[in-house]
Write a protein that binds this DNA or RNA. Structure first.
Lengths: 223, 223
DNA sequence: CTCGAGCTGTTCCATTTTGAACACCCGCCG
DNA sequence: CGGCGGGTGTTCAAAATGGAACAGCTCGAG
């Protein structure tokens, strides 16, 4: 009855995975989080997969030396905490709400059952994971190839499409220089230096709100 | 009837995904590759998923400026080229045999069908992808946190368990300083410098063959 | 209003890293 | 035998980066 599931490719972005998780017998709970609340923390036991209904979540890791690295920023429709499906028993990082959020937790076992029983759902989930894979791989390649200046330019361009699949915006969601620094693996003064450089060059504008000029900023990536 | 599929966790490392792909009606071809042969190249159309039966494969990306970054080294039992399942139409990187290899190509559509019909297989595939996800994420975190010296130490430790799930070896597979450099995102002189440093400190030995002392080398990671 | 927390703007220097160069070594092929 | 290609050992100056420090701004709580 779900025509959108005809082919893998046809599973478009309007598809709602949540419908399947709302079925009777699926062990799930929906919770509200305030900005800054942790959903789980590095070292916690690993028993649920999460699905973002509203808001946004930051995945980060803290090193022995205490510095934080932001691995991903997630938006409504994203899953996270899937590590437990691969047999991880503890969380390898911390998930924090970056705005007030509504997040559904699904028991690992329920998740597996739904993955078995619903092709449309499992297709979607596999796609989600592949997409995340691709994105993280791109981030890695970015790190391997580029200078921090280029990485910052790229991070801004990606943030401009945060949560809006394929529809880049001119306005970048509010984000501190500190967080930017931990996303691209450098220090805050460095981020500040380049932001001002970009501003002087007219690639971005900002007073409180950060706007980017995609076409100009893209130039930075190509030398 | 498939007892091994009882729980997700029970899908152990002895499980052989290939059995499912050998079923009648699955569009697949098995080919032999010599060392250095490309399996696919950046920009090629994207219609198959690959499975390594024998040998080893290197996934790499080439930047506009011509420098190469090695994203992954894969061993028998690994899948690659899964990007096409997520709707990618062209290859984002190049896959090259690093030794003489036997590799099975499975048509995207067949792969999807088997994923739908065989829980044991799809569990395994999801696990594989999650594992790759975790590994790439670790590589990214490594880049975000660490100096090239630490990254090199970590790369050597990981290479020591290349293809041997969970059973680290003392001998690291033959690999050029150039390739190491492109894996950790630095230059060859840098790799050379640190290798010699590690040798002087007794962390590694090498004449033609590279042996590591895991416990000593691990020290480098923790300052 | 006043204080403090959190973020931004800026400076400076020690250190790390790059990038290019040159010599050496060894195995393979004509 | 001689040359050539691919990998290694080493050097050095120029450039990028890290890290610490200090000042200013703004907004909300008391």
């Amino acid at each position: 009855m779900l025509k959108t599931a005809k082919t893998f490719k046809a599973v478009g972005r309007k598809f709602n995975p949540q419908a399947f998780l709302d079925a009777p017998g699926v062990a799930r709970t929906v919770s509200a989080y305030d900005k800054g609340d942790p959903v789980f923390s590095q070292g916690d036991p690993c028993r649920h997969v999460y699905y973002i209904q509203k808001g946004g979540v930051k995945l980060s890791v803290v090193s022995e030396t205490g510095q934080e690295a932001v691995v991903a920023l997630l938006a409504p429709g994203d899953f996270f905490g899937e590590g437990c499906l691969a047999g991880q028993t503890v969380r390898m990082g911390t998930a924090t709400a970056v705005t007030a959020s509504t997040i559904m937790a699904v028991k690992k076992e329920s998740m597996i059952r739904v993955l078995h029983e619903e092709h449309t759902f499992s297709d979607r989930f596999i796609k989600h994971m592949l997409a995340r894979n691709i994105r993280i791989e791109e981030d890695l390649i970015d790190q391997l190839f580029n200078s921090s200046e280029k990485r910052l330019a790229r991070a801004l361009l990606l943030l401009a499409r945060y949560g809006k699949q394929d529809k880049p915006q001119r306005v970048v969601p509010k984000i501190s220089q500190e967080t930017l620094a931990s996303m691209i693996g450098t220090t805050r003064p460095r981020v500040n230096f380049f932001l001002n450089k970009f501003r002087k060059l007219g690639f971005i504008e900002y007073n409180g709100e950060l706007k980017i000029n995609s076409s100009l900023l893209t130039v930075v990536l190509h030398d």
